[in-house]
Write a protein that binds this DNA or RNA. Structure first.
Length: 205
DNA sequence: ACTCGGATCGACT
DNA sequence: GTCGATCCGAGTT
């Protein structure tokens, strides 16, 4: 689908954008991955979102147009990637949590020497940023621009069966942990196993 | 200027 | 299951 058609799909509320990102292909630095696990973050309505307290220099891309890359450093070590969603000013984004390497395997293996299986190359948000060679300086990139060096191609409508889409609580968040805003494709070996944050309140319900 | 804690990962027991 | 690595942004003084 065209970049602008993709942008229209992503310029929606973040659960819809998250669903649209499953099965998408993300390409950067000689590696392509098929996205199989994502999490929606709902801006000012979501205490777990980096945008909860409003716009800052770090998160400003979340408040811009949909289809742009928001990169942050996690635990001082890892770079994690989001795709901005919703209309300008919304502060919504979707965290990319896992992908299957679909191209450039040699470069992927080179960047992820610690991975012992192909499925582990892009399993987990930190590993996904690593396998794609993403850095903080890539934040803000328009993933849908024609000829973009870092690019996103959504799966055509109907290509990802709704029956394969699963949802559950988000990983690692210490607040608002019980909303089922993590989506993944059932059966993908690259989906990370669920681990609740040790800082989260006890499970609800 | 300083403190604090994190949307993680992998090695180790 | 437990723990250390490592650094930046954000909030506070």
């Amino acid at each position: 689908m065209s970049g602008e058609a993709a942008r229209t799909l992503l310029a929606t509320e973040p659960l819809t954008a998250a669903r649209a990102l499953l099965g998408a292909h993300f390409t950067a630095n000689g590696v392509a991955v098929r996205i199989v696990e994502v999490e929606a973050y709902r801006g000012s309505a979501d205490p777990a979102s980096h945008a909860y307290r409003g716009m800052t220099p770090r998160n400003r891309v979340m408040f811009g147009p949909a289809g742009h890359l928001y990169v942050y450093r996690s635990y001082g070590i890892h770079t994690c990637m989001n795709v901005s969603a919703g209309l300008e000013g919304a502060g919504w984004a979707v965290l990319l949590r896992a992908g299957e390497v679909a191209g450039g395997r040699a470069a992927a293996v080179d960047r992820r020497a610690a991975a012992r299986t192909d499925a582990a190359l892009g399993r987990g948000p930190g590993n996904l940023g690593s396998v794609l060679g993403i850095g903080l300086g890539d934040s803000g990139a328009d993933l849908l621009a024609p000829g973009a060096a870092i690019s996103l191609t959504l799966a055509p409508p109907g290509a990802v069966d709704d029956a394969a889409v699963r949802s559950g609580p988000r990983v690692g968040v210490s607040v608002n942990a019980d909303v089922p805003w993590r989506l993944w494709l059932d059966g993908s070996p690259a989906v990370s196993t669920y681990r609740r944050s040790p800082r989260a309140d006890p499970p609800r319900g």
